[in-house]
């Protein structure tokens, strides 16, 4: 691809992961049998779709998200986001470029209320220092409340985040990520710890985030059945390698409504 084409970011996938190797802990990725390492993983995510990353526990899904979001360094390969190489940037820079992730288990600021949590996640240009000394604006509070309602935390504004049950903390974390107006969201295990009804709601919520806010999503989960319901394209990881990729139809199993 020529240099000019590199600059035509609109025609390129939003996120490209090219042949990366990552290691889980201090160790050597050249050890091929390492239990949790990524080996030559490649994937690309087009704008405006939902891409799933599936695989059994220990397949390296979370590790992949860690590598993309800059929380771990990669040994080889490169990662491009929105026309910029982010392979070796720190997580803060990557998040400010508009690639935000969530965690499993969900991580929120426990001693702050939900609304305060939301206010910590204003868009990057509002986090610079002189502006940070200002009191929150009404418009920000309105936006925060709106997003909390959007994810289903209607009454939770003043609740302390650390006291919320896990499924609500997941929603709060999603709302915080959305507050910063990201281009793309990496969602780690959105349905772990949820029952069937909760998983349905989460599927609905992720689809609405994608459709109404136009956010591109990369969703990592163990639950293949659920993933087929939500994702437009799926990469299946096993032992750190992509062993299968395709649309849910191509992967052969049609999504069936739960009985």
């Amino acid at each position: 691809m020529s240099d000019t084409m590199h600059r035509l970011t609109f025609f390129r996938p939003l996120l490209e992961v090219r042949c990366i190797n990552g290691i889980d802990s201090i160790g050597n990725s050249s050890r091929k049998d390492a239990a949790c390492s990524l080996q030559a993983v490649s994937l690309s995510v087009e704008r405006g779709i939902i891409v799933g990353v599936g695989g059994p526990a220990g397949a390296g899904k979370t590790l992949l998200l860690d590598c993309i979001s800059g929380m771990r360094s990669i040994d080889a390969g490169e990662i491009w986001f929105n026309g910029h190489e982010i392979s070796h940037l720190r997580s803060g820079y990557i998040a400010r470029m508009g690639l935000v992730r969530t965690f499993h288990p969900p991580r929120v600021f426990r001693s702050l209320s939900c609304l305060e949590n939301m206010l910590t996640a204003l868009p990057a240009e509002r986090r610079l220092l002189p502006g940070l000394f200002a009191w929150p604006r009404r418009a920000d509070l309105a936006r925060a409340t709106e997003l909390l309602a959007f994810v289903g935390l209607h009454d939770g504004c003043w609740q302390q985040a650390g006291a919320l049950p896990v499924h609500q903390r997941k929603r709060l974390e999603l709302a915080m990520a959305l507050m910063s107006e990201p281009k793309m969201l990496l969602v780690d295990e959105p349905v772990a710890d949820l029952d069937a009804a909760g998983a349905e709601d989460m599927m609905e919520l992720l689809r609405r985030i994608n459709a109404e806010l136009g956010t591109t999503l990369l969703v990592a989960t163990q639950d293949m059945h659920w993933l087929e319901g939500v994702a437009d394209y799926i990469h299946w990881l096993e032992q750190g390698r992509v062993v299968a990729a395709g649309t849910p139809q191509e992967l052969g199993v049609r999504h069936q409504e739960p009985v």
Binding site: R101, F109, L119
Partner: peptide
């Protein structure tokens, strides 16, 4: 102000604050 929120966020979970793009 929001500065206190940023500081409490650091106390509660510094890695998360960093990963969320805070300075």
């Amino acid at each position: 102000s929001r500065f206190r929120l940023a500081l409490v966020a650091i106390r509660d979970d510094e890695d998360k604050a960093e990963a969320a793009g805070q300075f």
